[in-house]
Structures are given as C-alpha cells and as structure tokens.
Design a protein around this nucleic acid. Structure first.
Lengths: 208, 208
DNA sequence: TAAGGCAGCCTTACGCTGTAAGAACCCGAG
DNA sequence: CTCGGGTTCTTACAGCGTAAGGCTGCCTTA
C-alpha cells in the first residue's frame, strides 16, 4: 500500500495519491485502507519512513570517508539521489511536522559524523540549522520549475532588462547551458553542491 | 479581501483561509469573491504580493549600509521580520510556483547589492541558490514547532540517549535556554543569523 | 425621464477530498 | 456447523474549490 502510494506519487505527484486512487490501484475501496492506516496523516508518515529507508539504504552503500567533511558530503549527496528519484519528497518533508524516528535518527548520525570530526555540540547544533533541508538532500527553490521558460519573447526580454536589470544581466551571462535541470528551475547538481560546500567549508573554518 | 485573508491566516493558519470563511468574514458569500479574483491560486498570489509589499516597506526603512554584506544582511533580516509577523508566510512561499513579479524584483535587488559589492554574475547566481529561501527571511525547519516538547519523561530520555546518543548529548548541552522560539522548533533569531552569516562569509571569501 | 448596461453579489449544484459508522465477508478454530 | 475476529465494502456526510446563471442597483446616455 505504501508502495502503491509511492508509485502514484512518482507518476502523478503527491496530490494525486488520494485514498480512493491508492485503493483503486490496489483493487480495493478507499475505506479499506483505513484498516491498515489510522488516517491520511499516518499514511504520509509512512511515506516519510519509506523515503528514510531508501536514504539509509543509499547511504550504506557509501564507502567510508576519511574525514568528516567528505563523509557528510557523501551522505547528503546520497540522500539527494533519493530526492531526485521522488520529486514529491521535498514537498512532503517540508510540510510534515511529524518528527519521525527515522528522520531523527538520520540527523543523529549526521551529528555523530560531526562529533567524530571534532565538532562541539554547539557547533553541530548550529550546523544542523545552517544545513536545514539540505541535510536531507534538497533545497527549496522559490522560483518555478519549468514555468513557461520556453516562450520568452523579445518584448518580454526588453521589459525584463528594464525592470530587473540585474537578473536580466545575470541570466544573459549564465546563458543556461545546463541541458537538463534536475530539481526545480536551475537547481542542478552543481548548484546544490556549491551551496553545500559553501556551508561545509564555513563549518570547517569554525571548527579549526 | 486580501486583508481579510491575511487576518484569518494570521489567526488560524493558512488552511483556515478558505473561500467560504473569507467571504463570511466580509459579510459576503464565497462565490462573490470570484468577481474580484479569478480563482484561489489568484488569491494566494495576492497574498504573496501582500507579503512582498510588507517586505519592501520594511526594507525601505533601513538606513543604507556601507558594504554589500551589511546591506544584504539588513535586507534579509528585515524580510525576516515580515515572516515572523505572518507565520503562514513560509509555508505559502514554499508551495508557490508562481514567480510573482514582486518576488523577482526583490531578488533582482539582492543581485544588485551583490553586483555593487563586486560580485560576478556567476557568483551572484550561486549566491541566490545558496541562500534559497533564506533570502526571504526564513528557512524550512524539518522538525516540529512545539510538538510535545513539554512532556519528556525519564523513560523517553533514556530511550533517546540509547537510540540517538549524539542528538541526546547535543540537546543536553544546548539546554534550550531560549525562552521563546520565534519560528519553528528552536529556529530563533540567533540560529538564523548564524546560518546567514556563515553563507555571507563564505561568499565574501569567494568574492575577494 | 426612461432605457440600457454592467459591476457586484447571490443561489444552486457538482465533483472532489478525507473519513465516521456499520454491515458483510472470509477463513481457521472449536 | 458455528463461531469469532481479521479484513473488506457500503453508505453517507461535511468541507473544499468553483462552474453556471440569476438578481439588484447605480451610472451613463439618449
């Protein structure tokens, strides 16, 4: 049933994973699901657990790194792979207020890595806040994924240049040479890793 | 009408701002709202615009800073004040895919500040990604705001210590001496500023 | 002054959501 | 065979956004 929900969310987004649709894909009625799940919140919690299982699995495949920074980087980028597999995952995790044990455990392991790297508890605490959702492999993009990026007329470009000259200049120079975006607008792997390394480098400096 | 929606969201959360409830608070029927607004998406976009107006207003009150870093910091912390006034704002902005002109304009100004500080377009682009939602004054916390943080029994503490020793140690040391949290769990002003400064310092180093 | 016209609001109804309450089924144990 | 209880289905309800169309009252124009 969680598997069915995941498949639906993968295919048509999280909002498509309604009780009726999940039931249908299982050859059952919506209300039948309620024997196995208390309510929809419970089901979403289950989805979070599925995600965390996948992350744990992905992370276990990593070869042990020598230093804390490399270890953190590996772990987080592994987690990110799961987010890329399930585009709905960021949205789900953002909205959840659940504090699932698996999520807590994941962060505990992150702190463990930092501690073994010589972090004080205080710095580790700050680090968790600084990483935020990036610890789980995603960052919320405020701009649109693929929102009519195709049809930019010359008139629009002109208006763009006059009203938001700095962004216009930036976009012109960036030239968007990234063929396929991964998550969101231009949040490709490079952008994510840049921000991640920026934070990790900063932490390293504070830890020295 | 947007004012009414804001008041409802302030009082009872964004999910309480339904068409029927907004209409009721205006002494009108739900469907009457559709004369002024195309659909609910439109209304939410309007709320985003309200937020951006408040941010612009707050930002304009700042005295001009001498260097880019201070200017960025001031601007972002001013924006954060708006987020603190409207707890529903982060959730709204996260979910929105709208690319409102006001949001674009805000980011354009951020890029402008960076450019005047000597940033290349490329670095400014990276910076926007690194800041993410922090540019608007909030960061998504994956843990719960006030989720039964009060009743931690000794048994729970014991289990906590054995299952997530690193977090347990961290929590014990942090001791949570922050009386009132502002947004989320312990995302108080200090945590936000720490993360913000970490990023700004990193950018400064890359810009030198 | 009379006649439109249209801005603004209301009524009704539909399909969708999660889910409460209870009946029906199936299947192994006595 | 009967029972019990684990599993499923049926029916129904409230609440959501909103499509379609009707009513009212002011403002303009002949």
């Amino acid at each position: 049933m969680l598997r069915a929900a995941v498949e639906i969310a993968d295919a048509d987004g999280l909002q498509a994973a309604t009780m009726r649709r999940i039931g249908e894909s299982l050859g059952a009625e919506a209300m039948s699901l309620y024997y196995h799940v208390a309510n929809k919140n419970d089901l979403l919690d289950g989805l979070v657990d599925v995600l965390m299982d996948e992350i744990t699995e992905a992370v276990d495949g990593d070869r042990p790194a020598d230093d804390w920074k490399q270890a953190l980087r590996q772990r987080i980028l592994s987690a990110r792979q799961v987010m890329l597999r399930h585009r709905w995952a960021p949205g789900l995790l953002e909205g959840r207020t659940s504090m699932r044990p698996a999520v807590v455990l994941y962060h505990d392991q992150l702190v463990g890595l930092m501690r073994s790297g010589g972090f004080s508890y205080d710095l580790a605490h700050h680090a968790l806040h600084a990483l935020g959702s990036r610890a789980l492999g995603f960052s919320q993009e405020l701009f649109d994924p693929s929102a009519g990026a195709g049809e930019v007329s010359d008139r629009m470009l002109a208006e763009l240049a006059s009203q938001v000259p700095n962004l216009a200049g930036m976009l012109a120079e960036i030239a968007h040479d990234d063929p396929e975006s991964t998550i969101g607008w231009c949040d490709d792997q490079a952008e994510f890793e840049f921000a991640l390394d920026l934070i990790l480098d900063g932490l390293e400096r504070l830890n020295s």
